[in-house]
């Protein structure tokens, strides 16, 4: 009996160890950072995503967004820009519980063009931040949401 229990505890320890190491490797391999996609206000999200960076306002990012979204569950966005060497694009929605919608890396052999569909909780600004040559640029556009799309 004792022997059994000892074995059981040994096994338990071993499995928990392998489980935790697996979970760890998953995070480091996937590089998907759960913290970035956590619940927080937009200001905090921006300051944590881009610490000590100035987000220059620019008119060179073109957002194609509906002026009025009937259904916040599906808001289509198309991002184009004439800024050179863009390597990362961030999409944020100001009043969503999780402001960061998505981030994209762009290879130089892609045109600066991204189309996507995302959810908006309520009427607010959509913020797109791009990174080019270690400079950050942002642009905003207001979308009126008739029916919120974040559930709850």
């Amino acid at each position: 009996m004792l022997n059994n229990r000892r074995q059981f505890i040994k096994k338990l320890l071993l499995t928990s160890l392998t489980m935790s190491s697996l979970a760890f490797s998953k995070i480091s391999l996937g590089k998907w950072i759960a913290y970035d996609f956590g619940y927080r206000p937009i200001d905090k999200s921006l300051s944590e995503l881009f610490p000590n960076k100035t987000l220059q306002k620019t008119g060179k990012i073109n957002l194609k967004l509906p002026r009025r979204a009937e259904n916040g569950n599906v808001v289509p966005i198309t991002i184009t820009s004439s800024i050179e060497n863009i390597d990362t694009v961030y999409i944020l929605s100001e009043k969503n519980p999780v402001p960061l919608i998505a981030k994209f890396t762009l290879d130089p052999s892609l045109e600066t063009y991204i189309g996507a569909r995302f959810k908006m909780k309520e009427t607010c600004d959509v913020i797109v931040v791009v990174k080019a040559d270690d400079n950050y640029y942002q642009t905003r556009k207001r979308v009126i949401v008739t029916l919120g799309g974040c559930g709850g």
């Binding site: 960061l100 052999s109 189309g115 995302f118 799309g149």
Partner: peptide
């Protein structure tokens, strides 16, 4: 060409274009 990291802010049945 592109790596995308997203949260649940992306709509059901996601659509992307490049």
């Amino acid at each position: 060409m592109s790596e995308c990291h997203m949260g649940f802010g992306i709509s059901k049945n996601p659509y992307f274009s490049f």
